[in-house]
Amino acid sequence: MATRIAGEITSNATARLGHQMVRGLEELNKATKETLAEAYKAARVYLEAAAVNEKNTLETILQLSVDKKRVGEYLASTKKSVEQITKIELDVLERHMRTTAEGLKAEPVTIQFSALEKKASKMYPKPTEKVKANGYGGYREYLPRTQTTRGQGGSRRLDRSELQLLINGKNSILDIKNMLDAQAERRTDLQDVMNYVEILKTAGLVEVK
């Protein structure tokens, strides 16, 4: 059953990744010379973040398996297949970006990271035991009462519930920002994410490595 469900996930993943690819293509189609670099960056984020989610979803199949070794091997190779699909679609995005740049009489985009992005990509927050110690909503008692100031991690646009769930020790702060962007219509401010992680750290709810 575990591998059957893994097959279903992979099948649906191809459609979901395809959806993210066309979403990225649309970002490029509406780009101007000035916004092309940002559009291409966003387009890649949609796909890459979705691919991470598909692989994480496959991982959960292990909850069902009796023969963890056999299923684990199956999942490892299936995750590689997802990576291959993603790679092909990223190639399509790159090709589309180059064609779009040509039409806009712009240089092809070379993705560059800002100083903040570089910093965020090296920071890996991990939840502490306090997060689940008191069950449903229990972690809130450690948080400051008001988080309403923008720039202090309290932006109204910041999806704090999802941000918290994305903290797993494996996602960098930049990964978290990207996964928030991939799931929302509006883009999240990286500094807001950094600030909120700092609030969680001060509250003893996360450690950052």
Binding site: I5, I9, V52, N53, E59, T60, Q63, L163
Partner: peptide
């Protein structure tokens, strides 16, 4: 994405 699970599929 923060709570991935096979139940979706």
């Amino acid at each position: 994405y923060g709570n991935p699970h096979f139940v979706n599929d």
